[in-house]
């Protein structure tokens, strides 16, 4: 269960972002819609524990973020939260297989090569196992980024504008993939976007 209460954040004293409370059960997904500048990325970073809020509480499966030291928060994030960014980035010197294995290594999960191959098959990229990130198209990169976030079977998946740079076809593919993968691992999914195309795809949504 993911729960937030009374979250706010400010980069300077003149403006304070306040965010609505969120409650998300296992296997549920949530769309957060908002225009530029309303603090979408800030919210993602707070939910992932990268930023600490000015006020309020984030709690994932009974663990309050502010109770953890910064080192254990890093580890907690590594093993429990998968993040998909608007522009996908990888370790450029590693091929897809090694990128996924690195993600497992860093989150202290067993480096199961078969699982990596299986996941790449599921997202239709089994032929890209030995490709380097720069050799992939935008759509492929976005799917691969989802794979790096999903490989470690996180409990919560946060996606920050995952479709903003994609055409309609790739947008649909990406969102379907995300939802499929989330439901198959029984994780929670939060997608934050200004992309109106996604409005009808989610049961629950919040507008910032």
């Amino acid at each position: 269960m993911l729960q937030t209460k009374g979250l706010s954040f400010s980069y300077n004293s003149s403006y304070i972002f306040t965010f609505p409370d969120i409650l998300l059960e296992q296997g549920e997904d949530l769309l957060i819609l908002g225009d530029s500048g309303v603090g979408k990325t800030t919210l993602i970073q707070i939910l992932s524990g990268l930023l600490s809020p000015k006020s309020g509480v984030v709690e994932l499966n009974g663990t309050r973020f502010q109770d953890l030291s910064s080192k254990s928060l890093d580890q907690f994030r590594g093993s429990n939260i998968g993040i998909v960014f608007q522009k996908s980035h990888f370790v450029r010197n590693l091929n897809m297989l090694d990128n996924l294995l690195l993600s497992l290594y860093l989150s202290k999960k067993p480096q199961d090569k078969q699982r990596v191959i299986h996941l790449l098959q599921e997202i239709g990229m089994s032929d890209k196992l030995n490709s380097f990130p720069e050799e992939l198209s935008d759509g492929e990169q976005q799917r691969a980024a989802i794979a790096t976030a999903l490989i470690k079977k996180p409990d919560l998946i946060l996606a920050d504008e995952p479709t903003a740079s994609l055409d309609d076809n790739n947008c649909q593919k990406t969102i379907t993939l995300l939802k499929e993968q989330v439901s198959s691992t029984n994780a929670k999914l939060i997608v934050i976007t200004h992309d109106q195309r996604l409005k009808d795809q989610f049961n629950k949504s919040i507008v910032l």
Partner: peptide
Amino acid sequence: YELALMRVHGATR
């Protein structure tokens, strides 16, 4: 960005 990404994946400083 790559290093930040690694931290997000759980890498320690």
